[in-house]
């Protein structure tokens, strides 16, 4: 079952075409990795999936993007609803300048959760879900900015989980972290895919092979190859994919 699909997706920043006719079907409850040299359009593609591109002035999108069979660029689409379903974790950890508790409760509060008991419950479950509960449970009222980089990133994952999304987009979510934090988050991603569909952008080939089921290789705004990760890394169909994953460029 495919949860997100694109057909003939084109995207321009002004006159610069950043995505060229992308057709992709993203399977549910799997980890899909987007790889490719920097500037090839991975982040741009990721952001078309929850319309974070709307924030960029002079961006133009053509083609079809569907989430559970709904055209998410159709007029009248509720973007806040979409972003609740399709959550995002950014490259640099970006906790809000508030307490750990309020960071996690931010999303649920937006969506109308008022009861203290329910918020407490959501905060605990989300922090456990992001494997950081034990480290912060005694200081929920402390500022989130006092956490280490790796903890902050897991906090951001917990914050994203707190709104009970369906899909989680992660744009190089471990590239700013040390190896130990990175491996914690990789383990976490592997656990999360039981309940969530996860799409990650990564520069790290080992990471892509370790945690992804499906892999997409982008080059200069085009989708060159898309398929099973094991297949792509053992027998790439395209010469350019092979060159990239064997480190010949990029």
């Amino acid at each position: 079952m495919d949860i997100l699909s694109t057909r003939g997706l084109d995207l321009w920043y002004g006159d610069n075409q950043a995505l060229k006719h992308i057709d992709m079907d993203i399977p549910e409850r799997q980890v899909t990795a987007l790889i490719g040299p920097s500037g090839c359009g991975k982040s741009t593609f990721l952001k078309t999936l929850n319309r974070m591109n709307d924030l960029v002035p002079a961006v133009r999108v053509e083609g079809l993007v569907t989430y559970r069979e709904r055209d998410i660029y159709a007029p009248g689409t509720d973007v806040t609803w979409l972003r609740r379903q399709v959550g995002m974790v950014f490259q640099k950890p970006n906790p809000f300048p508030m307490s750990i508790y309020d960071n996690i409760a931010y999303g649920p509060r937006i969506h109308g959760v008022r009861s203290k008991a329910r918020l407490d419950d959501i905060v605990e479950r989300s922090l456990k879900g992001a494997a950081i509960w034990d480290e912060v449970k005694d200081r929920l009222k402390k500022s989130a900015l006092s956490l280490s980089g790796g903890q902050q990133q897991r906090l951001c994952i917990a914050r994203a989980l707190a709104v009970e999304p369906d899909v989680l987009l992660m744009d190089e979510a471990t590239s700013a972290l040390d190896p130990i934090s990175t491996s914690k988050i990789e383990d976490l991603i592997t656990e999360l895919k039981e309940h969530y569909t996860i799409i990650i952008v990564t520069h790290n080939m080992q990471q892509a092979t370790r945690i992804s089921d499906t892999c997409a290789f982008f080059l200069l705004g085009e989708l060159i190859e898309f398929g099973q990760t094991t297949q792509m890394f053992s027998m790439p169909r395209d010469k350019r994919t092979e060159d990239y994953i064997t480190g010949r460029f990029g």
Partner: peptide
């Protein structure tokens, strides 16, 4: 106010005014 606050809030499904009221103005 860092752009990353705005992105994070909108990414959680916050409306614009709510983001301004709860993050941008306090900061």
């Amino acid at each position: 106010v860092p752009q990353s606050y705005r992105e994070a809030a909108l990414g959680l499904g916050s409306g614009k005014w709510r983001m301004i009221r709860t993050l941008v103005l306090p900061a």
